[in-house]
Design a protein around this nucleic acid. Structure first.
Lengths: 245, 245
DNA sequence: CGGCGGATTGAAGGGAATCAATGCTTGTGG
DNA sequence: CCACAAGCATTGATTCCCTTCAATCCGCCG
């Protein structure tokens, strides 16, 4: 579990639809040092009083909240192009951990540097938009955990990741890699590892999706959307969203 | 758990309502027309493509996400001094309803007017802080719904409201009015109305709290905090936070 | 008074947790 | 190169929390 700064080249993708403020944000991140983290590495630990903001470039990360008795909840999951911890950088002192789900490439911006960026009103508005998008995602997940059973939650989750990856054009087919253990899936969806396993088996048997190791293959999108009870419908036809990768 | 040194940076950010930018925000709301809504009134409906931002002044409101089959989840609950829908005003088109929990007094700011305010970088930074505080609240609630049983969720919820009201000096004793039906409580905590009733009875019988109609009386704060499994602990000693009321 | 939304309580069933054993990968060191 | 341990996944048996269904009650209001 090490976090080491490295220097890998990042291909600069011009984002046609991206705003000038978005470009500025992205630039600030990319001018910094590139980091890689191994699976399981804690990028930002609970209690950090000056949490940085992160730009995920490769791999996935998650934000987890732990309880005294050892149980934990995984609140949100991040894919390449996501910016993590905008509000944390502004508010200071986080109470959750940010963890690399698999091998991770990312950029980091200190709380101070990030705060300085917000002086630009366009950048600040962009930050509000980004936070808003994150909140909509967690709102849906909240509704899923609150009101759906294991089957529906799993369906909604898988479709959610699938849609996000597609919108960002990180995948084009029906399969993707999901670097989460079933234990972590359970912590995200509010069930035990055992029940995650059973649920996935049931979905495989009914032809909804396949899981091999950490590869997910979506087989029946429509059935999955039905199972998610409207919580995984794309509300509007997003234009290709390249995020900030 | 060790005693940590006081970090005065926390003070700087923990009372957004007190900052100059906060005053400006508040002023913009208060210059508008005061509105009153009856219990159950929908303030902002799902599908609204130009959602306004709201400042709650009296009563409580909540944000709810409904599913095609009629089930719904209540995502968050707002008390006087809260600003609702900052990100919605910026992003446009909401997919949730904002509803008056009881008789409600509030101010409204159109999406356009709110967007104009964000041009001031201090106001924008303040908006980011406010959204961040809201997210921390929902993060905890997410963890509760994901990992606690009915008893723990109820304890955490009651303490959460209690603490927020106290921090904002809206109450001073151990009782408060909660204008939610048990049905709505269930939609927030992820259980049925029936089980809400049973859970409240159990808590009454074990001397944790009393519920009469919509008055809540907290009897055993410590026992409630234990039941909430660390999710209802005040992470930092907030100075009195008057919000924007 | 009658109706209605909300709350309470009982009985029965089901979904998920728990307990426990086993198998499968992967990585590490002898 | 193999042995072995550790982490992850699978599966069965049992328990229990919560839902569902249903009946009743209560306070409130037209």
């Amino acid at each position: 579990m090490s976090i080491e700064p490295v220097d890998f080249k990042v291909r600069r993708i011009s984002s046609p639809g991206a705003s000038a403020a978005g470009a500025k944000l992205r630039e600030a991140f990319v001018n910094g040092l590139a980091h890689v983290a191994a699976r399981g590495a804690t990028l930002v630990a609970a209690g950090n009083s000056e949490p940085p903001a992160l730009l995920i470039q490769r791999g996935m990360a998650y934000r987890a909240l732990s309880m005294p008795d050892g149980r934990r909840a995984i609140i949100d999951i991040y894919i390449p192009g996501d910016i993590v911890g905008i509000d944390d950088a502004v508010l200071g002192r986080v109470n959750h951990d940010t963890v690399a789900a698999g091998k991770l490439g990312y950029r980091m911006l200190s709380a101070a540097a990030f705060g300085a960026l917000l002086v630009d009103p366009d950048v600040a508005a962009c930050a509000v938009r980004l936070m808003g998008e994150g909140r909509r995602r967690t709102d849906r997940h909240m509704a899923a955990v609150t009101r759906l059973d294991a089957h529906g939650r799993m369906a909604g989750f898988m479709l959610g990741i699938y849609d996000r990856l597609r919108r960002r054009e990180l995948i084009h087919g029906r399969s993707f890699s999901l670097p989460l253990t079933q234990d972590q899936l359970g912590d995200h969806l509010g069930m035990t590892m055992v029940h995650v396993s059973r649920t996935l088996r049931r979905m495989r048997e009914s032809g909804l999706l396949l899981v091999d190791r950490q590869m997910i293959i979506i087989l029946d999108v429509e059935a999955l959307r039905r199972a998610a009870n409207g919580l995984a419908d794309t509300l509007k036809p997003y234009p290709a969203d390249r995020g900030f990768a």
